[in-house]
Design a protein around this nucleic acid. Structure first.
Lengths: 106, 106
DNA sequence: CATATTGTAACCTCTCAGGTTACGCATGTC
DNA sequence: GACATGCGTAACCTGAGAGGTTACAATATG
C-alpha cells in the first residue's frame, strides 16, 4: 500500500499558518468567531486537540471551505499516528482464499 | 457546498454485505481474525460502533484494502450525522473582508 | 507600568471505545 | 426433546479525550 512517508501536517498548523496569520486574527478572537472556548482552539493549534465533526463544520463556515477538508486533514493525521504508534494491528492476517473454501472439508 | 442528500452507508453495513456475507464468515470468527472482541465488531456491524484508526488498519489487513477506505466511510458518516444533528455550528459566520481590514481604524 | 495575548494547569462533566461475563433468543443437528 | 452455535446486548469496569470555566505566569506591546 502506498503510505505517507512523513507525518501529515496537523490541522491546527493549517489554521494558524494559512488563516489566522494571513488574516491577522488572534486565537482569542477566532475562538469567539467559532463559538468555542479559547482553550479548545488553542489546543488544536498547538497540536494537542483534534478536529471533531462539529469543529469541522464551524471552520467550514468561518473560512468558507468544505467541512470535508478539515475532516480529511484530521483523518490523515490520526491514521498516520495509529499506523506508526500501535503495532498490534500488524498481526492481523489477510483472509486467504483457503478460508473461503473451508466448506470443502465436508 | 455540495452536500450529501442521503445518510452515507455505515461502514458496518459494508463489512457485513460486501465481505462477511459473500465470504460466509461469521461475526464471531471475524472478530477473532481481527483480534478484537465479538462485542466490538458486533457493535460496528449493527451501526452502534465506529471505525477507529486502529480498526481501519485491522480491516485493511484482513480484507487487503486501504485503511483510508474505512476511515473515509466513517468520516463521511460522522460528518453527515453532525451536519444533521447539531445546529449550533450554523450560527458561525464567515469571516468578512471587513474584519480583515479592521486595522484601518487606527 | 498597564494591557493584551497566549499556553496551560486544575477541575468538572459527558461520551465513547474496548474488554469480560452472562443472559435470552433464535436456529440448527442428533 | 436435548444440545450446541451464533448473535445481540445488558451490566460492569477502565481509560481516553472533548469541552467548558477559572486562574496563573510569561511574553509581548503601547
Amino acid at each position: 500500500m502506498g503510505k505517507m512517508k512523513r507525518q501529515p501536517t496537523h490541522p491546527g498548523i493549517i489554521i494558524k499558518e494559512d488563516y489566522l496569520r494571513p488574516l491577522s486574527i488572534t486565537i482569542k478572537d477566532m475562538a469567539v468567531i467559532l463559538g468555542v472556548s479559547r482553550k479548545t482552539l488553542s489546543k488544536i493549534i498547538n497540536e494537542r486537540g483534534s478536529i471533531t465533526p462539529d469543529m469541522a463544520l464551524r471552520l467550514s463556515r468561518a473560512f468558507d471551505t468544505t467541512a470535508d477538508l478539515w475532516m480529511n486533514l484530521q483523518k490523515n493525521y490520526d491514521l498516520w499516528l495509529a499506523e506508526h504508534t500501535s503495532k498490534e494491528w500488524q498481526a492481523v492476517k489477510q483472509i486467504s482464499s483457503d478460508l473461503i473454501h473451508s466448506h470443502s472439508n465436508c
